[in-house]
Design a binder for these strands. Sequence first.
RNA 1: GUCGCAUUAUUCAAGUGGUUAAGAAUCAUGGCUUUCAACCAUGUAUCACGGGUUCGAUUCCCGUAUGCGAUACCA
Length: 551
Amino acid sequence: MSKEIAELLFANIDKKPEYYYEKYPKRVLPEGARVTRFAPSPTGFVHIGGLFSALISERTANLSKGVFYLRIEDTDKKREIENGVTGIVDALNNFNIINQEGATSENEEKGSYGPYKQSQRKEIYQTFIKNIIEEGKAYPCFCTSEELEKTRHKQEELNINTGYYGEWALYRDKSFEEIKTAFESGKSFVIRIKSNGKADKKVSYKDVVRGELEFPENDQDIVICKSDGIPTYHFAHVVDDYLMGTTHVIRGEEWLSSVPVHLQLFQIMGWKAPKYAHIPTILKMESTSKRKLSKRKDPEAAVSFYHEEGYPINSVLEYLLNLANSSFEDWRKLNPTKSLFEFPFKIEKLGSSGALFDIIKLIDLSKNVIAFIPAEEIYKNLLEWTKDYDKDFNSLIEKYKENTIKFLTIDRTGKKPRKDISKWSDIKNLSSYIFDEIFNPEYEFPENISKENLIEIIKNYAEVYSFDDNKDEWFNRAKDFSEKLGYAGDMKLYKENPQNFKGNISDTTNIIRVAITGRKQTPDLYEILKILGLDRTKERLEKAVSFLSSK
RNA sequence: GUCGCAUUAUUCAAGUGGUUAAGAAUCAUGGCUUUCAACCAUGUAUCACGGGUUCGAUUCCCGUAUGCGAUACCA
């Protein structure tokens, strides 16, 4: 009888499972190689949690000499957005996460286990569905949503578990004739599995990150094929990951509760289930409660945010890697110059609790990453980034390429490079004083020095400054000039008897700094003066004096 | 309601039946420095709570609380 049902429902399907077993042979891979995938739905931008998951999958595959592929789970046409696939591919590529197989753009893909878009695999799913109907393991259900609703209400009244199971599974044991009548009347139907699970029995399995876990068996006759003929996620997952040879399913913890269903589905299909690794969600603190990063409220949820802000790719990747394996930090300390792709990442070492996204930590990490990038390379990145996000600044740094690089070089050489840049977008503000076009000083002079003294210092400095000094000469000159005006040139002397001086060299050099750059914090002043050149230095000093005089 | 997962400082976290409970960020204080940054030093945890098992529990067990998730013809 089940054969007739299968034929009735899926007359158009003429292939057998064997066809696909042959078409997609077992992968030939080295011992221990892991095959993983990133399987998003094209329903919006890529979430930072998605990138996290993709990174972990990619690392797990590549470190084991396996395969990482990208599968598009577009079985829900209602939620799909335009160019969703391109968005995903771009997002991954922007972060140097490259899939060996799968989608490469909206309608293109590579690899021999495709198609990698679920919407194009309908025939495959239906072949397997037809097959298990024939075997009597699945059946059509013609219930309307009203009928299902009614069942649910009744169950709620009786205070028992809701759902489609056991005696509540209305179409489970219908005769062929009844099914035929319903089918021929054109009623829409779904395909459900005939669950053999018992809610009072337990299944256990070993999760790669969480260890031994135990759940009640699934007793629901869950839907595997929707009325539009497209399978549900659950069924598509089982078929795809089997045929594509996935060894490790890495996904968010929201799937944990579905594991019994998936295990059961594999068992029904007669296939060996892959290993599962359920990774924690990335959360955000809001007032006092933790919550999932939300696409609507949190700009930092979208990976494009990091791109737009100009965080280096590696900063974001290192941050995520560190979230995944906290030993990353120690490794990085021991291997400051190695590529992050050499880090012996272990999915087994993942924590299982949700981590708060900590942008302050990201910023710190990013400063460290940028500190070790040579100036020329920073310049290249900056040029690239400003091209997309700050055209004006882009033309400025192109025009003054040499000065920009010189500026970026200050305090960047040696073992302890300056750590003041956390993202490309910081640079404009940090460097604004070397470009006359955007120099707009606020003159944050120290409060404890009188206006007259400030003017005196600046005017005198304009007279003694010599462009040709080397650094030592320059500093000695600053010392002499400070002492002449009554400021201590030697900090030790000053600290012993501060009352003997009007101030110290730190005051005078700082005043010069503010006069030249408009601000209190800058890298090495000597180098800045070198970049500006003699004329502009004088000009700046005059400008500061007239600013002060006019106050 | 039912089921599952989680809980070590402000944050990320390592780790163990007996330890001074790693490390990193943040914050605070001090030091060094011509400024800032950096750097150095120091400080910050009754290991959620309550019971048990044990000579001994943060670690094992049971409850409670809180958070998160699942309970769809969404993924």
